[in-house]
Amino acid sequence: MEDQAMKGLEDMKKHASNLKSASSDDDFTNILAHIKSSSTPAVINYGASWCRVCSQILPAFCRLSNNFPKLTFVYADIDECPETTQHIRYTPTFQFYRHGEKVDEMYGAGEERLHDRLWLHS
């Protein structure tokens, strides 16, 4: 299931220019710096390859990036970015940014819940 979710992320990255994936702490630091210096709203999905719920919501997260082109979507695997994600206690966690500031946070999955929160912040 993890492989399927990651394949879904790779496939979607080919289509959605607003979808990014952090593959290391340095990569995530750069992405986060861009989010904090940008006026573009953003959502970060903190997940883990071993997390069943994360693997289930990741394809929906990727699909939703096409529905909300004005949002920047970021996926950060807590195992690939251990230093920069050490504050994350639950997976999946979604953090929402506006004008560089964290304005909201959502724990757990649920495609409809996520859609509604994305709509609210787009």
Rank of each mutant, 00 (worst) to 15 (best):
Tyr46His: 02
Asp25Glu: 06
Gln4Ser: 09
His15Cys: 00
Pro92Asp: 08
Phe94Val: 06
Ser37Ile: 07
Pro92Val: 04
Thr85Ile: 04
Asp104Val: 08
Thr72Met: 11
Asn18Gln: 04
His15Phe: 12
Phe68Tyr: 13
Pro41Ala: 04
Ala76Ser: 10
Asp3Gln: 10
Gly100Leu: 08
Asp25Met: 03
Ser21Ala: 15
Phe94Thr: 07
Asn67Leu: 05
Gln56Arg: 12
Trp50Thr: 06
Ala33Val: 08
Ala5Asn: 09
Ala60Tyr: 14
Ile57His: 04
Tyr97Lys: 00
Asp11Ile: 00
Gly47Asn: 13
Leu118Tyr: 01
His99Asp: 15
His15Gly: 03
Ser17Ala: 14
Glu10Phe: 10
Asp77Cys: 01
Pro82Gly: 05
Glu105Ser: 11
Ala33Asp: 13
Pro92Met: 07
Tyr75Thr: 02
Lys7Ser: 08
Phe96Tyr: 13
Tyr46Thr: 07
Ile57Ser: 01
His15Pro: 00
Thr29Lys: 13
Ile78Asp: 01
Ile31Arg: 05
Gly108Lys: 12
His121Thr: 10
Ser65Lys: 02
Leu114Gly: 05
Lys13Glu: 12
Arg63Ile: 09
Gln95Glu: 15
Ser65Cys: 08
Glu105Cys: 06
Phe61His: 05
Glu101Ser: 06
Tyr90Asn: 08
Trp50Pro: 03
Arg113Gly: 02
Lys7Cys: 07
Ser24Gly: 12
Phe68Trp: 08
Asp26Ala: 14
Leu19Asn: 01
Gly108Val: 09
Thr93Cys: 05
Ser122Met: 10
Thr40Arg: 01
His115Gln: 12
Ser49Pro: 01
Tyr46Gly: 02
Gly100Arg: 07
Met12Gly: 07
Leu64Arg: 08
Lys20Asp: 08
Ile44Phe: 05
His99Thr: 12
Ile35Asp: 06
Ala22Trp: 01
Met1Ala: 10
Asn45Lys: 03
Glu80Cys: 01
Lys7Leu: 14
Lys13Gly: 15
Leu71Pro: 00
Leu9Gln: 10
Asp25Ser: 06
Gln4Arg: 05
His115Pro: 03
Ser21Lys: 02
Glu111Ala: 13
Arg63Glu: 15
Met6Gln: 13
Phe96Arg: 04
Pro92Arg: 07
Val43Asp: 01
Gly8Cys: 08
Ala109Thr: 04
Ser24Val: 03
Asn67Tyr: 04
Lys7Trp: 04
Ser49Phe: 01
His115Leu: 04
Pro69His: 03
Thr29Pro: 00
Glu80Ser: 14
Asp79Tyr: 07
Phe73Cys: 01
Asn45Cys: 11
Val103Trp: 00
Cys51Asp: 12
Lys14Val: 10
Ala109Glu: 07
